[in-house]
Design a protein around this nucleic acid. Structure first.
Length: 189
DNA sequence: CCAGTGATTCTCT
DNA sequence: GAGAATCACTGGC
């Protein structure tokens, strides 16, 4: 793990999540700027790590700067970026990116052409980038992953996380204000 | 709005 | 080990 990547992710997911917005995420050269994320911490009833390590979530308890990939609803592969020091059970769910690189490949994998339907949502994004169980636990600073810093500051909005039944009072979903690529709109200030 | 989807995890024997 | 509930979603009504 490179020093830079280690330092970037060695913080609670709640801190790392907004800093990821605007950073370009690629898998096999396919991807684009991250526009929407959610933070999950261990002391968080909505988090997979809430009840401690299990076979599925073990990557969440591994070193920061690695991927945690899980299968959702028996269908979708969703991508998380592990944060904080070893054992913290802290990660950021990547919910949406702007389809910028490999758009044709994304469209082929997704079976749709509409750009809005390629990467807007964690399941869609996983399918578009070709995320699978083979990526669970991989480092984010080497192939097939690539993570580039944001070119400049972005305007961040926060709101409740999507699709959870507990921990809904925590407004730990973050998105770039006004981005047309969000999976759902975020309320303004 | 709600059905499909199948692994994961909890609870009770 | 078996039965049941839950689920960080999507797509089609």
């Amino acid at each position: 793990m490179s020093r830079l990547t280690r330092r970037f992710f060695d913080a609670p997911a709640l801190e790392v999540a907004p800093r990821l917005l605007g950073c370009t995420l690629l898998l096999g050269g396919v991807g684009g700027p991250i526009v929407e994320v959610e933070a999950y911490e261990q002391l968080d009833p909505a988090s997979h790590s809430f009840r401690g390590p299990t076979p599925r979530n073990r990557s969440m308890f591994g070193p920061p700067g690695h991927a945690y990939v899980y299968r959702s609803y028996g269908v979708h592969w969703c991508l998380n970026l592990v944060c904080d020091r070893k054992g913290a059970g802290s990660a950021v769910l990547v919910r949406a990116i702007e389809p910028a690189h490999g758009v044709e490949l994304m469209a082929g994998r997704r079976g749709v052409d509409a750009p809005r339907l390629l990467c807007s949502g964690p399941g869609r994004l996983g399918q578009a980038l070709g995320v699978g169980p083979q990526h669970d636990g991989l480092r984010l600073d080497e192939a097939p992953f690539e993570l580039r810093p944001a070119p400049g500051p972005v305007s961040v909005l926060a709101g409740p996380r999507i699709g959870i039944s507990r921990g809904t009072e925590r407004h730990w979903r973050f998105g770039i204000a006004g981005s047309p690529w969000l999976s759902r709109r975020l309320a303004g200030p």
